[in-house]
Amino acid sequence: MRYPKSGWVLGVATVSAFLAFGVASWDANAAPSPKPTAAVEQPTVSHPDPGPAPSAGIGQDALTGNELARARTLAETATLKAGGKDVTGAAGVEYLSAGIAEDGAGRTAELYYYDYHGNRLVKQVVDLAGGKLAGSYAATGMQLPPSEREVRTALGLLLANPLAAELKNAYAKATGQAYTGQELTPTAHIYHALPADTGASQCGRNRCLRLIVQTQDGHILDLDKIIVDLSGRTVARLT
């Protein structure tokens, strides 16, 4: 006997919930706008002011600009640079990235570098509070995502290589114009050789990139088969 009454109560609750959702999600475009029901719960979140850039972080906070600069000063020792080469072939090592150590005590930064001479990935562990280098590790056959300078260098190597003809053809096809040095926006990812690769089988031991190049008017050039070997400063075409 009570069933119909309960059903009616549920009906009211459902309708008011529906109206509340409608108000929240329809924004100002809703017309005619239903009158907001009194005491409707509206989910809200705070809008804190981000404030100025912090000088230092706490706990697992991202490394700040100041901390990154200090960590690099501590990490980039004479030992690190000795005998190494950066992506341009100059003496030293290539700075790749840095992050806060997971589960680290205090503020511990991990900085990664690539030595193109020895094809080594180097991790420098920096104790920011103690102001000292806490550890240094290196291994071959390991690759981290490329830095912006590495991506630009890879595009430069491609443009200076006979395989640039492929980029130029793709540019002309996409834009209807000849490529005469117009600005290009490259991104890239690490390429690891697959078992059947010809021409790029060294990739993985060597640091190789596959480029995605965008034209100024937004066209993306298909360069999927082109592999730039930054270690060998060569360009290959996958077959």
Binding site: V45, S46, I58, G59, Q60, D61, A62, S97, I100
Partner: peptide, 27 residues
């Protein structure tokens, strides 16, 4: 345990509060 700019602390309509820190990692 983190800077105020890295804290997310919000209370939902039923009174439940979630609080955490966030940061971005390159990878």
């Amino acid at each position: 345990s983190c800077l105020s700019s890295a804290i997310v602390k919000e209370t939902l309509p039923n009174g439940t509060t979630w609080e955490m820190c966030w940061h971005m990692d390159g990878r």
